[in-house]
Amino acid sequence: MEFLRPTSWGEALAAKADAPGAVPIAGGTDVMVELNFDKHRPEALLDLNRVGELATWSEEEDGRLRVGAAVPYARIIGELGGRLPGLAMAARTVGSPQIRNRGTVGGNLGAASPAGDSHPPLLAADAEIEVESAARGTRMIPAGEFYTGVKRSALAPDELIRAFHVRPAEGPQQFSKIGTRNAMVIAVCSFGLALHPSDQRIGTGIGSAAPTPRRAFEAEEYAAGELDWAGRSPLDERVARRFGELAARAAAPIDDVRGTAEYRLHALSVMARRTLTWAWKDYLNGGATACA
């Protein structure tokens, strides 16, 4: 197996163009597990740790944050937790402190596992994924179009993930995850939610309950219409419950070793109801400005 070590982004893209079968590796928290279990034997590993700019983030002119693919979870929590609270909540549930020091959102996107913890908050916050190839340059893929199947994404074989772009939260965000224990656990299912008060809109993301991470559009539209954005009146419990039911309806879970489809549907409805309840409470308490 080749081990490619580019020192710049340009070199990395060239290497990926030359060897489309090369698997990018940053923190290694996912790739190394797969290698260790002998699930795959890629022709090459493309080590991105020397490409320094991948581990940086910046504020863009369009007001969004551009977060390098190799910024580890620990730094997302520490440096961006105030502006990306949903993603930070999800990041806190990833593995152990050691894993959070190494693991990256870019890696989560690259693996495109339906159980990846970053996906629901990225979906809920309308993130876009910046990918690039040496031949065709940069393109932006909305998170909702990025995941195409179980562990498959819209990434072309010669492309690398450069960053994700996302607006700082302008309203409360929540993330909820159920596992069979309290930490160090792959999600049985998860749910991310973001309020977008200026558009009077809700964003959602479902994890580990369908072949891909996905949004619950019907639930989003229903709640957006029912919520009293301007009057800020409390959430009607029936609305929260219905929102939960619709969120579950968007899922297509299976039975596996971590949980049953039936339980996943139930848990999703509970998590959707709860996250909406918490987020709306924050909104009523002025969370909209506190997070901006």
Partner: peptide, 12 residues
């Protein structure tokens, strides 16, 4: 493996 066979962790 220990990712799927769940012994309790500190948080439990």
């Amino acid at each position: 493996d220990l990712a799927q066979y769940h012994v309790p962790v500190n948080a439990d």
